[in-house]
Design a protein around this nucleic acid. Structure first.
Lengths: 247, 247
DNA sequence: TTTTCGTCGACTGCCTACAGCATACCGTCC
DNA sequence: GGACGGTATGCTGTAGGCAGTCGACGAAAA
């Protein structure tokens, strides 16, 4: 047997490459943002991030640019990078787009997902329900993302899946702090969705997904109304207080 | 009158900043790709591009990474950047996504576009028809893009518009070489679309836009079947022929 | 002849250094 | 007292340079 055949079969054993620094930095900054260690509107100084992460400015620059492309930070030429400030309006629009993309994904998934796909969905769903029942919120949130990602993947449209994935990441940022509410209801809807997909009923799958994401959206908007955030009214460049020249 | 007020009113007069080199390089490379001076699958060597454009490697690197995020080039870590090879299947999926996004945009535009919006649409449409009648294909293609962009903008959903714009750019790349066919029929459909938007009939606008983009898609697929492209079967790293050490 | 290993060349990834610019501070003039 | 211009400071944007790594080629072994 040729090694390449083996590799083809067990392709899952990809070596976790030490990845480029740039990618590591991207993930690190995303983590800093979602965990609110970097606050919306905050000026991101390249040299500070570089020192904080123990790398040079170059990987940081490249990471910031990629993050800008994905909507995490805003790049003002000559001024620098600022953590994006998620408007209520923008969040609403983003959730609307997510609804659109995922609804279509569900419709297509119902038409294209085979037995294997459905089995994977069931598995994820079971684990999600277990996580909720044991109050493991973090796992539940992660599994929720995985399940939605799998649905888009099963749509058979890679471009659609990629776009949906991008949108989902941003949604997750806005959504995470207030997502811990819906709990079990969400997973009941997931189960119904999988039933529809298994039955090959695209219309029903689409309808369920639409209602599902709209529920999420409504829950988010409701949460936000009680807890508005405006931490940086002036996204102005920060200036370090005059160093008092100790000496 | 305060100067800031003036600036607020005539915000269009933003100084065309000499933009960062990175942005200039991005546009230059995009231009090189759509004009087929850089062929699909071709290995993009940073130093060569840098010399060609008269800049250093850094802006080129950053540009390539941004272009990778938008699907123009593929980045293989440790190997470099390659011009993306548009599969027939992928083009189909991309066009499907475009249909989805623009259909929704049309629906929303019908609900949100005011008189001013409709007037702008009419103006663009008139200019487009004029361009077709005078066989000015380049203008017609450009105006077509502008009109679609305006529809998405009038949807009132900025996120949706941004996404649609990204997708449209890629579509334009795949599509441009074969786009010069549809001509007048396309602009008749545009007119009907604007009528629906003006009437505030979201359902009708969506239906027209769906059929419109599906026509485009069909026309594209038809063209492609007659003219398949596979310029780089092995997207392998290019190797410069051994320099014969003259001397 | 086919396979395997060693070597070479070239390119990427990263770091460091420099120039330009935007902003904030502060003394001066009206 | 308020506005204006000069000056200082920190940051970004860009360039150049070095080490690591990947692929290709060629020689040696089976």
């Amino acid at each position: 047997m040729l090694l390449s055949d083996q590799a083809g079969q067990a392709a899952a054993t990809k070596i976790p490459r030490p990845a480029t620094l740039r990618e590591s930095v991207i993930e690190a900054i995303q983590e800093l943002i979602v965990s609110s260690q970097l606050k919306p509107g905050q000026h991101l100084v390249e040299s500070e991030l570089a020192e904080l992460l123990g790398v040079s400015r170059q990987p940081v620059r490249e990471a910031l640019q990629q993050l800008s492309g994905e909507g995490w930070v805003d790049l003002h030429p000559g001024q620098g990078a600022f953590v994006h400030v998620p408007t209520l309006e923008e969040a609403d629009q983003l959730l609307a787009v997510r609804t659109l993309l995922e609804t279509e994904s569900a419709r297509l998934a119902a038409e294209h997902a085979g037995e294997g796909g459905v089995r994977q969905l069931r598995s994820l769903c079971a684990r999600g329900i277990a996580a909720v029942q044991s109050d493991d919120v973090d796992s539940a949130v992660a599994l929720n993302s995985e399940l939605h990602a799998l649905v888009t993947a099963l749509s058979g449209n890679a471009v659609l899946a990629e776009l949906a994935s991008q949108v989902a990441r941003r949604v997750r940022w806005y959504h995470t702090p207030v997502a811990r509410q819906r709990g079990m209801a969400s997973w009941d809807e997931h189960t119904a969705l999988i039933d529809a997909i298994e039955a090959g009923d695209g219309q029903r799958a689409a309808r369920i997904m639409r209602e599902h994401t709209e529920h999420t959206r409504a829950s988010y908007m409701e949460q936000r109304e009680n807890d508005p955030v405006e931490p940086a009214p002036k996204p102005v460049r920060r200036r370090r207080p005059r160093t008092p020249q100790a000496g």
